[in-house]
Amino acid sequence: MELLDFARGPGMQWSIGIFVAGVLWRVLGILLLHHRRDLSEPRVGGAAPLLGGAQKVVRRLWPRKEFKERNLLPTALAYIVHIGLAIVVFGGSFHLLFIKNLFGISWPALPSAFVYFTGAATVAAGIALLARRIIDPVTRLLSNFDDYFSWFVTLAPVVTGLMAVAHFGARYETVLALHILSFELLLVWFPFGKLMHAFLWVPSKARTGYVFTRKGATS
């Protein structure tokens, strides 16, 4: 069995299996935890805490004005990475073939040139974010293996994907295999590292917003 056959067959099967099992483990493990009931009288009652939770999710999409000067650039770069990934994954014609094969659904692809440009912009923004993380003493101190490895497994499929469409670096079958394997590495790492924020950031922000609003605190 060659590398590409492994990547398209058993590699895909195991990585998606680990991804599904890992995500359910993490999500259910958190949701089913014992949450102590708040017996205090709510400062704000009714639907307000729920609204507060939703507001916090939305407000945290952009830095507060106190931190805007410091965080505007990294926030913008992070948006480029996230939106770029979404465009590449859900707009690229080759990826839509993969999605259709897996889930049986499809939609019109975006123009290839636009997807390739977006992929390149995503990589550039990702590299800028890494540089900032390393250069800034605060983020460097806060960073650990999880941050760097999550960065690597996120950008590796984009880089290898661009290499594959450009037929660059090695024989096409090797680069395509590396592209698929790098995506599989992303799937395997996803539930166990900080990439899990894709599933957890909304419930965690909403819960914090709910609790704070209930206590009458701004969030």
Partner: peptide, 30 residues
């Protein structure tokens, strides 16, 4: 079958087993 498509055939079984295992471990941990 285009090259990007997976060669993985028994998807239903694998996904069901993975989901069951993940749910059991998550519930067990909780």
């Amino acid at each position: 079958q285009p090259l990007p498509m997976s060669l993985w055939t028994n998807r239903g079984k694998t996904l069901a087993a993975a989901a069951a295992a993940g749910a059991a471990i998550g519930a067990g941990a909780a």
